[in-house]
């Protein structure tokens, strides 16, 4: 018997592609000063968001984003059958504490900054597998909660390296439903392998993740027999300026022709004068770009076919101290207008 739902090595095809029926994104103040201000649903006035710690602020950010996405379809949280969610903090507490309030059956995901794609494809499998009809995929990241966990205390006077990226404060939530509605559909997804070419610099995650993105994109195109210009836009999650420059060179090396129309959420997120060095990063980077400008452009018909390749660097401060290199991963989800 031929497996109809899997094609090639790593790609899953959805028979009845789930539809993205509603989405929302809330971002931090700095992200709100960037080029996409009008495309975000809501911009936080400050990083505390009315809470007493960065972690609480992040959990509230995620919770409010899910509520906002759900309310756009006039649903209540209890109308949602499954929440697939993740974030960057230890034990993904932002997600589980948000789920505690929302009281939606909950699956936690950790894929570092690749979590948005991981959550979307898991949600889509749950729907196309016939188990659920209405699932929310959501992620969050918060600059200061990530900074204190992965790098330095926020008040310490340190100089950031030129290749370092700025963790985006932002959350994105997408409501996926069994395909009876119009709207962008999640047609197929490629689950990435971990690629580690020995990069160790925790201040340069773009370089560590670029080979994983290159591998996943190449595998996706060959699994689906699609030319690279099949997509109006291939967008990676958060390679930043350094990583996306590397990926372009890897495209050439891997023979990905014609050169795809390619961009990166980390590069797009901020203006050059915002002093973020190599661009944005974090789960919230690809999530808020997707749930803000990118899906808006799909609805407007400016983008018909989008391949989101969210990238993650799966290290921890402990493994970095122990001298381990950084394992990179990338998952691709294809979004297509009907």
């Amino acid at each position: 018997m031929v497996n109809q739902k899997k094609q090639g090595l790593q790609t899953i095809i959805f028979e009845e592609p789930p539809v993205l029926t509603a989405w929302a994104t809330i971002v931090g103040p700095k992200e709100g000063e960037g080029p996409w201000r009008s495309d975000f649903d809501w911009i936080m006035e400050d990083y505390e968001f009315g809470e007493s710690s960065w972690e609480k602020a992040e959990s509230k950010l995620l919770r409010e984003t899910v509520k906002l996405a759900v309310s756009k379809k006039n649903y209540q949280p209890e109308d949602i059958e499954l929440l697939v969610s993740g974030d960057l903090l230890n034990q993904i507490t932002s997600s589980s504490f948000a789920a505690r309030e929302l009281q939606i059956p909950f699956l936690g995901m950790y894929g570092a900054c690749s979590t948005m794609a991981e959550a979307l494809l898991t949600a889509a499998m749950a729907i196309d597998g016939g188990y659920f009809e209405r699932v929310v995929a959501a992620v969050s990241s918060h600059h200061y909660s990530a900074e204190r966990q992965f790098r330095f205390p926020t008040e310490q006077g340190v100089q950031r390296s030129m290749s370092s990226q700025w963790t985006v404060t932002g959350a994105g939530a997408v409501v996926l439903e069994k395909g009876i509605y119009g709207g962008p559909r999640l047609t197929c997804a490629t689950i990435g392998k971990i690629i580690d070419l020995g990069q160790k610099d925790a201040n340069d995650l773009g370089s560590a993740m670029a080979p994983a993105a290159a591998d996943t994109i190449k595998t996706h195109l060959s699994d689906t027999n699609r030319p690279s210009d099949y997509y109006d836009l291939i967008v990676t999650g958060d390679l930043g300026k350094v990583g996306s420059a590397l990926l372009k060179q890897l495209f050439i090396k891997n023979g990905v022709v014609p050169e795809p129309n390619y961009s990166d959420c980390g590069v797009l997120m901020f203006n050059d004068n915002q002093d973020v060095h190599a661009g944005g990063s974090g789960c919230g980077c690809s999530a808020s770009m997707l749930c803000g400008p990118l899906l808006k452009k799909m609805v407007q018909g400016k983008i018909e076919r989008l391949l989101l390749v969210a990238t993650g660097a799966l290290m921890s401060p402990t493994t970095s101290f122990q001298g381990e290199s950084i394992p990179g991963i990338a998952h691709a989800v294809a979004l297509e207008n009907p």
């Binding site: 330095f152 310490q156 340190v158 100089q159 160790k200 610099d201 925790a202 340069d204």
Partner: peptide, 11 residues
């Protein structure tokens, strides 16, 4: 020392 050696040198 910070700029010319490996990036793992922290304050």
């Amino acid at each position: 020392v910070m700029d010319l050696t490996k990036p793992a040198i922290t304050p």
